[in-house]
Nucleic acid binder design. Sequence first.
DNA 1: CACTATTTTTAGAATATTTTGAATGTAAGG
DNA 2: CCTTACATTCAAAATATTCTAAAAATAGTG
Lengths: 178, 178
Amino acid sequence: MHESLVAVNDSTVAGLGRLARFFGFSEVMGRLYGTLLLSPEPLSLDDLAESLRISKGSVSMNMRALERWGMAHEVWMRGERKKYYEAEPDLWQVIRNVLNGRERREVQVALEVLDESVEKLKSAEDELSPEEKELAEFYLERMDDLQAFFHVAQMALETVLGTESSLDFEEITKIDIG
Amino acid sequence: MHESLVAVNDSTVAGLGRLARFFGFSEVMGRLYGTLLLSPEPLSLDDLAESLRISKGSVSMNMRALERWGMAHEVWMRGERKKYYEAEPDLWQVIRNVLNGRERREVQVALEVLDESVEKLKSAEDELSPEEKELAEFYLERMDDLQAFFHVAQMALETVLGTESSLDFEEITKIDIG
DNA sequence: CACTATTTTTAGAATATTTTGAATGTAAGG
DNA sequence: CCTTACATTCAAAATATTCTAAAAATAGTG
């Protein structure tokens, strides 16, 4: 294979490995995704293990994770016993899968915890000493800031998630962070 | 201290620890930030070590990291030898610091690498066999997708970074991901 | 300038994560 | 069914990360 093709493959696989790490996935997941993305044909577990020089066990586990996140899909090859995979090529679909399955829940939980905290502070007010009351006031201000923050994050998320494969950035840029 | 205040402090510190992890920082950084955020007074390294039950060495290192990221600031206390810190309370300022110092560079590098890849593939065209040529075509399509993706990411970043402390979400929602 | 309170660095210990290869499980083909 | 070609699981080993406590460095004070 020509040097240029190898070089481009290498840097792309490495770059997607970095990106995966950045998004809190294992580097191997990103590299598997990259390998599949640059393959015109679906690849088997053995193909992938050979290409990335890692054990088949690792490939199996990481491919299953990729599948769960909708980053890769199994492909049936006629007359073949092996499992074959191909990458989900729509990067925005991938992003939406991840945001929907992970960030959304995180933000949801954060907002719930903040609500509870505010509730707790308000209903305990009577039992507090003057100093404690002052601190509770301070806490409430900070809870407010955090709530505002997560609220904007939630709006941004819902906006991205609410778009079809072709997200119009006009939608995103209308959230008031103030 | 009243149970409710302790509970709110605990869950907030834990939550910000989670958030820090999510953003690729150490959990301790997030917990330090949370502790400072919920303290009306600046805290010393010893205060923080005691509050989080971790070694002073760890506090020192992590606080320096927080400072580098503009998530906390040193505060001079008259008549005190110790260093005191307080949290940067503007979460959007924190986000901008991080995006500006990290994501921005990442996206920049990614786009440069992609440019190089496209260049490499185009200039190697003459030397390629017919099969290789076909693969190069395929690679170019994928590079295109990746470029489009990072380009949108770049626009979104620049939009957030270009806002003052009060980001108008209208700005964000105008980027065309198509 | 030496003393002391404090922070920073660091090397090693403790912990957590990832990787691997062998054992086990599963299903297609005969 | 039995065999075989594969995929998956798992426990041990390798690696990476984080934490600590003690040593080194720094800076404020008399």
